[in-house]
């Protein structure tokens, strides 16, 4: 059950926020740095005393306090490509990648969502698929021995400071104008937050803010607290990346593929017949050109 959250922080929540802010100085500027002591760790403290009565020395030991460390739920998603990805229209499998890092202090399951319908003014990709990088070969490989398909909305387990590369492929619709753009978003929502609050949409007003604490369901048996990677001003538990339809580009390639001389040889001399192959390739947007990708033709005779 989340603690009540008001506009003015309560003592408990404010106290929790201070710890989280302390963590933030470690976590936020250096994405991918785990947040300190592991969740569930018991911190013991015991003091001892020596004293004397009439010169007779004695020792005494205090009780031991045990303080359990709560789990901080923090995750950072960042795109692996610096800029928008150039694409053609249409395109069957335009690809982007994200890095998902658990910057909290416990083992946590994160539900991954690929959001496509978030474009105002741009275009929405038709369909998307997720893959978990799993074959140690950079980039996405499909099929046997390739990366592992991942069902949208299901979770991946991440240890504290653990990272996963997530690839996404989307279908780019046909007939898009040159320079048309689209954004997609990858969300990594803590399963603990989703289960405890019932909310996984970061744009929902009900999404629990940093400092919200869930009793007894943190890794290691303590509480679980929403970390600062979920703050409304600078949320980093989701990230955007995008596509941009390339400008039309026509490539022409002319290659001599056969020569026939009058005597039946392939000697090139006056009177020989030369067959050429002309290849025309159109990249980027094709909506205004209606061109075909390949044109094969034996056209030119004479040398």
């Amino acid at each position: 059950m989340a603690n009540p959250v008001g506009k003015k922080a309560t003592g408990k929540k404010q106290g929790l926020m201070q710890g989280l802010l302390g963590v933030a100085s470690l976590v936020l500027p250096t994405f991918g740095f785990a947040a300190g002591t592991a969740a569930g760790t018991l911190i013991p403290n015991t003091a001892t005393m020596q004293f004397a009565i009439d010169g007779d020395s004695k020792n005494v030991r205090s009780n031991t306090t045990l303080t359990r460390v709560d789990e901080v739920l923090d995750v950072v998603v960042s795109p692996e490509q610096a800029d928008t990805v150039p694409i053609d229209s249409p395109m069957e499998a335009a690809q982007i990648s994200f890095l998902v890092t658990n910057t909290g202090n416990g083992v946590e399951a994160y539900r991954l969502f690929l959001d496509l319908n978030i474009n105002e003014g741009g275009f929405d990709p038709a369909r998307g698929e997720l893959f978990v990088e799993s074959n140690s070969v950079p980039g996405l490989q499909l099929g046997v021995g390739g990366d592992t398909p991942h069902v949208d909305g299901t979770s991946v387990m991440l240890a504290a400071d653990g990272s996963l590369t997530i690839h996404a492929t989307v279908v780019i619709p046909a007939a898009l104008a040159a320079y048309a753009e689209s954004r997609v978003r990858l969300r990594a929502v803590s399963s603990t937050i989703a289960a405890a609050s019932g909310v996984s949409d970061p744009e929902s007003a009900e999404f629990p803010p940093p400092g919200s604490s869930f009793t007894g369901i943190g890794d290691g048996g303590g509480n679980a607290a929403v970390g600062l990677t979920h703050q409304a001003e600078q949320p980093v538990f989701f990230a955007f990346s995008g596509f941009r339809v390339e400008a039309p580009l026509v490539l022409l390639d002319k290659t001599a593929v056969a020569v026939r001389a009058d005597d039946g040889s392939d000697a090139v001399r006056p009177g020989s017949v030369v067959d050429y192959r002309l290849k025309v390739e159109v990249r980027g947007s094709r909506d205004r050109h209606g061109g075909r990708n390949h044109v094969d033709r034996s056209a030119t005779r004479g040398a």
């Binding site: 106290g15 710890g19 802010l21 302390g22 963590v23 947040a35 911190i43 359990r68 604490s213 607290a225």
Partner: peptide
């Protein structure tokens, strides 16, 4: 000073 029943990394503990 408040109860130490909710503690996360970065918190200050007073003994």
């Amino acid at each position: 000073l408040v109860s130490a029943d909710q503690v996360v990394p970065g918190d200050t503990l007073h003994y």
